[in-house]
Each structure stands twice: as structure tokens, then as C-alpha cells.
Amino acid sequence: MATTFTDSKSELMRRAQERLRAETAESPWTTRQKVALTCRALFDAGHDSGLAGQITARADDPGTYFTQRLGLGFDEITEDNLLLVDEDLNVLHGDGMANPANRFHSWIYRARPDVQCIVHTHAFHVAALSMLKVPLIVSHMDTTPLYDDCAFLADWPGVPVGNEEGEIITAALGSKKAVLLAHHGQVVAGASIEEACSLAVLIERAAKLQLAAMAAGTIAELPEQLAREAHDWTLTPARSRANFGYYARRALARHPDALSS
């Protein structure tokens, strides 16, 4: 016999979150493997733009992180061809060079010790929205993990290979999870690789929804209190692990060469 039909929403949400935490195991993959799977998952999600974009994740030693080799597309990244670099982009392990645009990642990592993974891409719909110089509008339940958590940089500072661009992008991001860069693309700064991958998939979907809605009419705002509730409900480590597990399994099915073990 049912026993929960008189329970409050807050109590039902609390119990659901507890069970999700208990049921969702930590990812079985290493940091290198998760970065490679993120590259493949985002390639499949429409984030590929030739050699543009970078995905990085902190490594064990302070001031070091993993990233892809310049010259390889997201669909070519494997756990074995990733580079280990320092804050100056010197290659500590691996062959080739890092994308010089990775410099602004170093700035973000220095300013945000909570950030473990950064995803920067020029995904099609994000790039199209960036050309309009309008902020990301979160007005759908599915995209609420980004509600009031996506900043906007309205002035394009140019190709982000200098320290100036690192300072500008880091300041625009502030304490938020993401930033939309006018005339450029997006940056997601995640507390984990799982979170960064999930939000990167989501920001492209949010931009696609926004462009479609703008073409049809005026976008209606979400009620703030309910939107914040939804943000907190959907942006949790357990939910990110569950999302990433799905994206990773799908990526592995399509790209079994991403992992060597």
C-alpha cells in the first residue's frame, strides 16, 4: 500500500537525493580516461569545430593538467595521446604541443581552486548565439543547472592566447559554472570532469533551444524561486556522475578506440 502520498515535496526531494547518492557509484575511469571520453562525447554532441576548443583537467601535481594535443580533433583523442602540461603550457609528458589558447585555462585554475575541469568549445548553436551578443537565457526545466550560473562576456578580447585574455575571461566567469563569450563560444568550469562534461552538453542544448524560441517569439522567464530549486535539484555530484556515465557509455559504444584499457 502506498505510504508517500501525503509527504511534502521537500521530503520527497530529500529522500530521492539520498537514494541517488547511494545508487550512483564513482566513475570507474581514470582522469585521463574521463578526459578522453569527454572529448568523444562532446564530439558526438556537436561541439567539434576543427582544431578549436580545449578540454583540460587538473592532474595530481599542483599547477599541472591534462589536455589534448594541438592538431588532433576531439574524435581523435585517446587516453594515450593526451598531454600533461604545466601552467606555462610546457609539455611534461606526451608528444606534440598544447593549444596556445590553453593559457586562459591556467588563469581560471589559479583563480578557482574549486574547478577541476574546464571545457571550452565553439559548439554550433553556442557560437551562433554568441554572434548575437545576448546572454544565455535559461527558460526550460532541462537547462536549469545553468540558471543564474552562466555569465556573459559581451566584448570579444580577440584570440585568447595572451595573459590579457586569461584575466578578462577569468574575471567574466567569476564564481559561476559557465560563461558565454560573445563572438566566440563557451567555457564551462566544473567541480569535476563529470560535471563539466554534463554542463557542456547542456549549454549547447540551451543555446539551440534559445535560438529556436527567439525565432518564434518572446522567451518567458522562469519563476525565480522554482528555477533556483530546479538548479539545486539537478546540479549535484550524483546527478553529474549519472549523466556522465550515460555519455561515456554511449561514447565508448561509438568510439571504442578512446580507451586502451
Rank of each mutant, 00 (worst) to 15 (best):
A2R: 00
T3A: 02
T4P: 01
T4L: 00
T6F: 00
S10L: 03
R14D: 01
R14M: 02
Q17E: 00
E18H: 00
E18G: 01
L20V: 00
L20G: 02
R21I: 02
A22P: 00
E23M: 04
T24I: 06
T24S: 04
E26K: 07
W29Q: 05
Q33A: 06
V35T: 02
A36P: 00
L37T: 01
T38V: 06
A41M: 08
A41E: 05
F43G: 06
H47Y: 02
S49W: 09
G53R: 12
I55G: 11
D60R: 14
P62N: 14
P62Q: 11
T64L: 11
T64G: 07
L70R: 11
G73L: 12
G73W: 12
F74E: 12
D75S: 11
E79F: 07
D80T: 14
L82K: 03
V85K: 08
D86S: 04
E87H: 08
D88L: 03
L89T: 02
N90E: 08
N90M: 03
V91A: 08
H93S: 14
H93D: 13
G96R: 14
G96P: 13
A98Q: 08
N99I: 09
R103K: 14
R103Q: 11
S106K: 09
I108Q: 12
Y109N: 15
R112Y: 15
P113Y: 15
D114M: 15
D114S: 15
C117T: 13
T121V: 10
A123S: 15
A123Y: 06
A123N: 07
H125E: 06
V126A: 09
L129F: 04
L132W: 02
L132D: 03
P135S: 04
P135E: 02
V138H: 01
H140M: 15
H140S: 15
M141S: 13
M141K: 05
T144G: 02
T144D: 05
P145A: 04
L146I: 04
Y147G: 11
D148G: 11
C150P: 02
C150A: 03
A151P: 07
F152P: 00
W156R: 10
W156V: 10
W156Q: 09
V161P: 04
E164R: 14
E164G: 13
E164D: 15
E167I: 13
T170V: 11
A171E: 03
L173K: 07
L173G: 13
L173C: 03
K177T: 14
L180V: 14
L181M: 13
A182E: 01
A182W: 08
A182D: 04
Q186W: 03
Q186A: 03
V187I: 05
G190I: 03
A191R: 10
A196W: 04
C197S: 10
S198R: 08
A200W: 03
V201G: 07
L202S: 05
E204Q: 14
A206P: 14
Q210P: 11
A216V: 03
G217P: 05
T218I: 00
A220E: 09
E221M: 01
E224Q: 05
A227L: 13
H231R: 07
H231M: 09
H231W: 11
H231S: 07
D232I: 15
W233S: 12
W233T: 12
L235D: 12
R239T: 10
R241L: 15
N243A: 01
F244P: 13
Y247H: 05
Y247D: 00
Y247N: 01
R254C: 00
P256M: 10
D257N: 05
L259W: 01
S261G: 00
S261M: 02
